[in-house]
Design a protein around this nucleic acid. Structure first.
Lengths: 282, 282
DNA sequence: CGGCATTGATACCGCGCGGGTATCCATCGC
DNA sequence: GCGATGGATACCCGCGCGGTATCAATGCCG
């Protein structure tokens, strides 16, 4: 099976439309039809149900969609990491660390500081990305290592080490009545009048339904809280860089959040190993 | 990057010889030289150092060897799992479970029994393989789920659940002086005169150096112990199916062994989920 | 119920690329 | 210095990928 065939199939399976898929791939529709037919012939498996008006996935097709995406990510990762390894010999870049924008700020700063003072440290690029994108970044080679937060992020298919766990706080507009208390419980903040919980983008790029505002990153979130449009439950370390017009109150019975450092399972890079060692010794 | 190019490169990188690699791939040597040159040109990266007498990997080449193998495994997995999914609709096979030959016998039997009596169970093929091969089987799609034993097997890059932990025993020829004791310590069995520890095949297919015999599976091992050529430290559950001419003595300070059920991280199969649920409830 | 738009499949064509053979050139061993 | 070894180069052929034109089946509309 060639990656070209996989790319073609994934495009059709995602669009469920040969014309649009062909457009997305930058080829004409007939060669695409032919390529899919040939793939099915070679596999000896029907992947799509076509009714000349509509296209649907068979059971085998769904399997190939999932597995094919993973395989394409692995190929992309091979490409990117090879290119980066070549640059590394000639000098500059080193590791790419990815984390959620606006999370674990001081932990990250401490880690980068400690690592930079190691004898054979290499430059570390920091990449900030949206919620749930880190795993993909690691899998397709855009990043080498990530800071994740359990239980929010899944560490499925990754190697990881725990760095620390912390409680959570509810972040409210300064002056909100609840800020007078020194602690609250989940029940107290589950349904705050006028402050519905924000809706975050899911892994599929869509937002769940509900009354709260859609948020993409922490800056947006803070601004919306300052405007009294929403509230949020966040790890207590967020207090370190909270805006002056926000206040945080510990939520004693919120699930504890574990910050982990995670990396793709087969990495053999010495620089990565040193960074991880530094992180676990913090 | 096409899988054909990856296969070609991996062959050359493993053989470090264009002629032999071409032979292995079933093509002539010149097209192979060209394909590698083209791959290097497209990546913009030197992968091999050629000196017209010898071939060596560059740093980038080593990265591509590791990452490329993983990517090819992922593509193979997509192929195999798709084929199997198609068969599943028409009837017979279901899940493939892989474990080390001769380990966790009764646990496996209990698991298969319990699962078979579930309402919507599918047939489970059991595959036995050598030490350290299971991870590869899961990654390239030859198996769906495995029983592994920590700390011996690595669960890197896999999802898993712990099933049970147990102590270890030293297995000796019946009548050996130590079998008179009801327990021993690691120090007592570290260097048994005349019974050097067996040498097991490593992940790269080679055996470490040392005085002990090479063993590939448990049957061989038992036979060699019965012949007083070696001894072994094994999980205590091995006592259930020990030959009559062997004896086991608990080793009180040996590391405890954890049996885990492991599967590739992105599986979405309902049958697999049911099997795992059954396993964790045992 | 007939015309039209939509959408996937088929027919056919041209060229680029992968693979083959023959050969060259550099290096090593004697 | 000569042959053997091993990778690169030159050249040719045929398959296969991608393109255009067209067909065929289905759903929508009047």
């Amino acid at each position: 099976m060639e990656t070209r065939e996989l790319r073609y199939f994934v495009a059709v399976a995602e669009e469920l439309h040969f014309g649009r898929a062909a457009q997305r791939l930058g080829i004409a529709q007939p060669p695409l039809s032919r390529a899919i037919a040939q793939l099915e012939r070679r596999l000896g498996v029907a992947l799509l149900e076509r009714t000349s008006r509509t296209v649907a996935l068979t059971r085998a097709g769904s399997v190939l969609l999932i597995e094919g995406r993973a395989a394409l990510d692995a190929v992309d990762a091979a490409d990117r990491r090879t290119r980066r390894a070549a640059l590394a010999t000639t000098g500059h870049p080193g590791l790419v660390l990815v984390t959620k924008a606006g999370a674990s700020g001081e932990l990250l700063a401490k880690l980068l500081d400690a690592y930079a003072s190691e004898p054979d440290a290499v430059p570390v690029d920091v990449l900030l990305c949206g919620i749930g994108e880190q795993e993909r970044m690691l899998r397709d080679g855009r990043a080498d290592v990530a800071l994740l937060h359990r239980p929010f992020d899944s560490t499925v298919g990754l190697d990881c080490e725990e760095l620390r766990t912390e409680g959570q706080v509810v972040v409210l507009p300064a002056g909100h009545p609840l800020t007078a208390q020194d602690e609250v419980r989940m029940a107290d903040v589950a349904e705050l009048p006028g402050l519905p919980p924000p809706r975050r983008r899911g892994p599929d790029g869509t937002y769940p339904d509900g009354p709260g505002p859609e948020v993409r990153d922490t800056t947006q979130l803070y601004q919306l809280i300052a405007l009294s449009r929403t509230s949020a439950i966040l790890p207590e370390s967020c207090r370190a860089d909270l805006r002056h017009d926000l206040a945080a109150v510990p939520v004693v019975d919120a699930p504890r959040v574990t910050t982990v450092i995670a990396w793709p399972p087969h990495s053999r890079s010495l620089a990565l190993a040193a960074l991880i060692r530094t992180a676990t010794r913090l």
